[in-house]
Design a protein around this nucleic acid. Structure first.
Length: 423
DNA sequence: CTTCCACTGGAAGATCTGGCCT
DNA sequence: AGGCCAGATCTTCCAGTGGAAG
């Protein structure tokens, strides 16, 4: 890109015609490859229109298998159809439980969502007792009346804390609410979720289940094609691009979201490089780019202690002393904390941080066992380029100085170059 | 086959933060 | 002001583990 002031932001759309079909929030007018699931879904919601008792509905399937899109689709039809019958009173509320880890937090979110519609003040996310929040929730529901469809997206985040799934369906029979029929639509990424519910919830939560299997490559192609056609100018996409996105995503997660993101990223890379066509190579670049972003984000979102542990491991990496066993890593960690004048945590807690980072794919763990002479222990090393870790640490003011030291140590040992090519 | 090292990882509960209620 | 609440983070304790050495 040129450095002159003129034209820095000139419109530059040789690739995209209209990228909105590739947004995460885009709602297609028809849903492909999910006919059976939609039919089941429709049957499960039908009783609402018929004013009959309605089961709760649970959708199971991994991310990007169409659960959320299908639900938005069904609800908008349900709402418009319900409006044509005078005797059907219907409202819907939607809460994404993505960042909610307990029933308490879900209840607060529901109360706030309900209050939003009426211009009332939001309630705080802490401070109340659980029963207090549930009472507030019942009050709000009561003032709505009729059938209330409550969508709890990513409900599996609440884990074992499932009181809300016990309380809501029984609100009416327990006389907490008068004239409201709550219908819960739970959306879960975790097939195990139902198994792990507490027995009292499992026994009494009348429900219909709908499974959303991962998409295969053919289905993903069929999903991508119409979007690609709208999003890109004619003849910009090479023939292998959509199949390649579909194949990558099918192989990895079977997620339509992943496939669509790949396609968009590939387009953006092509645009940035001022190419006049999107080729398969851009898809491969996009794959790398998305993976990298996810790791960066994972690293950035660690707590201060997490960063300190990561820092200790990076130091060992820079000294070429990897993999490190946990006690050596812990010594280093303590020294780093002293230098930073920061609190240090117990060895046990450091192991927890390490196992979190392992889950995120940031580090590798090897189990070692030297029997009677040296026992059983774990060794760790970075699974992401040292350069990437340092980038994150350098941008975290507290770790800037230490990161600089690590960086020069790594340079002395020539440990940055080999990793640089990817980043 | 038994011993036993050096951890690992589960469990329970303490501490701290931010916020409500009277 | 002081008690209470929920959640996140951390500490303390300790039974359990797997394989080389004996």
């Amino acid at each position: 890109m040129s450095n002159s002031l003129m034209g820095m932001f000139e419109r530059d759309q040789q690739v995209f015609a209209d990228a909105t079909p590739l947004d995460d929030s885009y709602e297609p007018e028809d849903i492909r490859e999910r006919d059976d699931e939609l039919e089941k879904y429709q049957r499960a919601l039908q009783p609402i229109i018929d004013n009959r008792p309605t089961s709760n509905i649970f959708l199971y399937g991994k991310t990007g298998t169409g659960k959320t899109v299908a639900t938005k689709f069904m609800l908008s039809h349900l709402e418009s159809d319900a409006a044509t019958y005078d005797d059907v009173e219907l409202s819907t509320i939607w809460v994404s439980c993505e960042n909610l880890s307990s029933s308490y937090q879900v209840a607060v979110a529901l109360v706030n969502e309900l209050r939003l519609g009426q211009g009332k003040d939001r309630i705080s996310t802490t401070g109340y007792s659980q029963q207090r929040v549930f009472d507030l929730l019942y009050d709000e529901l009561d003032s709505l009346g009729g059938t209330v469809v409550i969508v709890l997206d990513e409900i599996d985040n609440i884990g074992q804390s499932d009181d809300i799934l016990y309380g809501l369906p029984r609100a009416r029979s327990n006389d907490y609410v008068e004239d409201v029929r709550p219908v819960i639509v739970g959306i879960s990424n975790d097939f195990q979720f139902r198994e792990n519910l507490s027995p009292k919830v499992k026994d009494t939560l009348a429900e219909k289940e709908i499974l959303f299997p991962p998409y295969d490559a053919n289905q993903l192609r069929s999903i991508l094609h119409p979007r690609a056609e709208k999003a890109f100018h004619d003849d910009v996409l090479e023939d292998d691009v959509v199949p390649l996105c579909a194949a990558f995503a099918a192989q990895d997660t079977g997620s339509a979201r992943q496939a669509i993101r790949l396609l968009r990223e590939a387009g953006e890379i092509a645009q940035a490089e001022e190419a006049d066509a999107v080729t398969g190579d851009f898809v491969r670049d996009a794959q790398d780019e998305l993976e990298k972003n996810q790791l960066y984000q994972g690293m950035q979102e660690l707590t201060t202690q997490g960063h300190a542990v990561l820092c200790a491991l990076a130091y060992h990496q820079a000294l070429d002393e990897v993999p490190v066993r946990s006690r050596d890593l812990y010594d280093r960690y303590i020294k780093i904390c002293e230098r930073l004048d920061a609190d240090s945590v117990s060895e046990r807690r450091v192991r927890d941080h390490l196992s979190d980072m392992n889950m995120l794919g940031l580090i590798s763990v090897y189990e070692r066992n030297e029997g009677l002479s040296a026992g059983r222990y774990h060794e760790y090393e970075l699974d992401v380029p040292l350069k990437a870790v340092l980038d994150v640490l350098l941008s975290t003011s507290r770790f800037e100085d230490v990161a600089n030291i690590i960086q020069s140590t790594a340079e002395d040992n020539n440990l940055l170059q080999s990793n640089l090519s990817n980043y």
